[in-house]
Write a protein that binds this DNA or RNA. Structure first.
Lengths: 228, 228
DNA sequence: GCGTGTTTGAAATGTACGTTTGAATTTAAA
DNA sequence: TTTAAATTCAAACGTACATTTCAAACACGC
């Protein structure tokens, strides 16, 4: 962190904060440039458009995170015996927390932005992400498949997306949740705390036994009666 | 479904579809009234404002769903021995699927809207929801607490929100996921299929053993060792 | 110190939004 | 049929937005 920040830097810093808090659509360039104390036109001068600013904000973290993840995945794939699921999921922790070196609270901000990117419409973000980093995630799928050999591929597909939802939603509403947690349980929870709480949850979830029941047997196990 | 739809009805139908697809902020009243084939001013005439329209769209489902859930929760709370977690979660299935009687694809649409409500800024929706239906959800918390007596309250809080994220995100990206699933695995998955896949996932997740490890021990387990 | 290319500044452009208005039209009770 | 209320309609209002423009200020190699 240098003492003097360039205009680009100031814009990125203000943009990531506001985007994470308020979402991409609900944050205006006027808010960003006002917080960054730069001229409104400088966003379009330096980044071209709001869309490209959004990608630049994410890219600052992705170029750090994804090669690190790729490296971890490759390392795990190289070992002889398959890794356990919790081993696989654990490799996310350090690379994510190292985003705090990119910027203060970088890990939290990045995950919030990721959540916004998936829930806001922003179709260009999905494309941008899959196009640039799709092959890294293929390795993750392979690792989970090795860790849970009994899981049919389609079930694994769904569970990985369920898990993505867990993470992304949690981070998108992270502020609100942390506030409630502190008010109700007197426990201060930072991003690291949330990640560590997520690991056992996701490990158990992804490795859950596959239901063999038919839809009908799931309707109210208690009283029995009445179909859907 | 009557052959003639009132203006209110047409507005609600168009609004729920567009809100679910595009989110609340990114859907304009002009899009809604255009799809509903009614005059722009009729939204403010019938509902007062966009904010109140959003609440009316959700309310149409909540007034059906929440009393049903409340009734199921009360029934489960009345039994002598505590219910299993999967019994508790199963009671969601029928009430949710009955939303399909409120409107075609009602269950999917409602869950998508719920997701939008949590991730969009829309502070008024959180308030609206907690204020009207908070005590119903208190019963759910109690039931889960009985089913998982070893789970500390704060851990339960987080896991319930993780689970909410799983459901809400899955429904928000339901269309895309169902398309991929059909293309990659040749399996047609409807809302019921997704819900039934969610149950074992969530049961295992919520009941997962609480991690007793310290943060540091989670940094790259390296090789074998360590359980979940 | 000068002159060129880069960056910033204030202002304006055009578009889209939620909301309001008041007259026209439809509805339904008397 | 009359009449008053409820509803629909086209148009406009004021605001906020992303983006553009172009002159001023700046940086810095010569």
């Amino acid at each position: 962190m240098s003492v003097k920040h360039s205009t680009q830097h100031k814009i990125l810093d203000a943009a990531q904060t506001l985007f994470a808090e308020t979402g991409f659509t609900d944050t205006s360039l006027r808010q960003i440039t006002s917080m960054a104390e730069v001229n409104l036109a400088s966003v379009n001068y330096h980044f071209g458009s709001k869309k490209e600013l959004i990608q630049a904000v994410l890219q600052r973290y992705l170029v750090v995170l994804m090669p690190r993840l790729d490296q971890e995945f490759t390392r795990l794939l190289a070992v002889q015996q398959p890794n356990s699921l919790s081993q696989v999921l654990s490799v996310f922790v350090k690379p994510l927390l190292e985003l705090n070196k990119v910027h203060q609270n970088g890990a939290r901000i990045f995950l919030q932005l990721l959540g916004r990117g998936y829930t806001d419409v922003q179709g260009h973000l999905r494309w941008f992400f899959n196009h640039n980093y799709g092959r890294v995630l293929d390795k993750l799928v392979l690792l989970v498949q090795q860790a849970c050999p009994d899981l049919p591929p389609s079930e694994l597909f769904w569970r990985l997306h369920f898990s993505l939802g867990t993470v992304v939603f949690t981070m998108a509403s992270n502020e609100a949740l942390a506030e409630i947690a502190e008010a109700d349980f007197n426990e201060k929870v930072d991003i690291e705390g949330v990640i560590l709480r997520l690991l056992p949850y996701l490990s158990a979830a992804i490795a859950a036994p596959v239901a063999t029941v038919t839809p009908l047997s799931y309707t109210a196990p208690k009283m029995a009666s009445e179909g859907i």
